[in-house]
């Protein structure tokens, strides 16, 4: 009898596994738990067994019934759940119901990274006009007319002749004029970065665009030094390129700073120029009307496209303004 119960258990378990629908499960229930099921008959017949067997078969039989009821419930639950998401036929490789999400332009993304890095150093963000007076773009930055340094910025002009104030309109060649505008209207201390579009009359190729972005930075305070400049740009580079980035400073020339700096990072085996910088030239302070001899400061400028190109292995700057989604969607 005990053997019979064990055999029954095996059969019931096996039978349940092949139940894939409710009706099959129902049949199974009738077969193993129904009034006329073998188990019911055994339990009904228990009273006719001899006392020794009675107890043992009774215990085992009732336990089996509870077990079978338990696995029935569990299987039923599984079937119900499966039905709601078509369990057995669910193909989760099918496309879901998609919500389209766009992407920010890689220049915007890089600008945000730069802004974030400098915000944490107490720098604020400012903007200025893209069509600008030559006074701000050049003269106030210690780049007088006729100066050969003007060759560093091939200019696109709007005005042919000077106006009554002796000014000419141009497309700003860098975001540095905003430096002059800020100092003209604001007293130190100043910590500011200026992102924006710039324009240069320059033949385009894989590393040159006539239309590009720049981020200018300026810090002015009492007793700022070359060491502060280095420390700030170190900090920025670590945030931007990773904390173990190797950085190199070399002498360079920009008319609005002295000493002038070019900063490179060591990237994939090469030194790559990242930004120009320097201590604000005394003539720039003079033109801005800062007369306090204890006031000093530093300025820097960088191209977000170049930074993005380095970080993402982009080999052609023209891709940024081609607005090809096959490019834009990669970032």
């Amino acid at each position: 009898m005990l053997e019979k119960l064990k055999k029954l258990q095996k059969q019931a378990n096996l039978g349940l596994k092949s139940c894939n629908s409710r009706s099959e499960l129902n049949n199974w229930k009738i077969k193993y738990l129904g009034r006329k099921s073998e188990l019911s008959l055994i339990l009904k017949d228990i009273k006719n067994l001899d006392p020794n067997m009675k107890k043992e078969v009774g215990m085992l039989g009732n336990k089996l019934r509870l077990d079978l009821e338990g696995i029935y419930d569990a299987h039923l639950e599984g079937l119900e759940l499966g039905k709601s998401d078509q369990s057995s036929s669910l193909d989760y490789f099918l496309p879901g119901r998609e919500e389209k999400i766009g992407k920010l332009h890689p220049v915007t993304q890089t600008l945000r990274e730069i802004k974030k890095a400098f915000s944490s150093l107490g720098f604020q963000i400012a903007e200025g006009p893209e069509i600008e007076w030559d006074k701000y773009n050049f003269d106030m930055l210690n780049i007088p007319e006729d100066h050969p340094a003007r060759d560093m910025w091939d200019t696109m002009w709007i005005d042919e002749k000077m106006n009554d104030n002796g000014e000419k309109m141009l497309l700003r060649t860098h975001t540095s004029p905003v430096q002059a505008r800020i100092m003209e209207s604001q007293e130190p201390p100043i910590r500011v970065i200026v992102p924006g579009k710039c324009y240069r009359y320059e033949a385009t190729d894989s590393t040159h665009e006539w239309h590009f972005y720049q981020v200018e930075g300026l810090a002015v305070d009492k007793n700022l030094t070359f060491s502060d400049l280095k420390g700030t740009l170190y900090e920025f580079s670590k945030k931007m390129f990773g904390s173990d980035t190797k950085i190199r400073f070399r002498c360079d020339y920009f008319p609005f700073v002295e000493p002038g700096v070019d900063m490179s990072i060591f990237w994939e085996g090469k030194w790559l120029e990242i930004l120009g910088a320097g201590m604000v030239h005394p003539k720039v302070f003079e033109k801005a009307g800062y007369t306090d001899a204890n006031i000093s400061g530093f300025a820097f400028g960088m191209g977000p496209e170049r930074i993005a190109m380095i970080k993402h292995d982009i080999d052609d700057i023209r891709l940024f303004y081609s607005n090809d989604l096959r490019f834009l969607n990669q970032f």
């Binding site: 107490g122 910590r191 700022l224 502060d228 280095k230 900090e235």
Partner: peptide, 21 residues
Amino acid sequence: ARIEGYDSIPAKPLSGVIPEF
């Protein structure tokens, strides 16, 4: 600075007052 080498000038965290926001 350039003859001494820019790399020999120390770098230090930006000092001074953080401007009013």
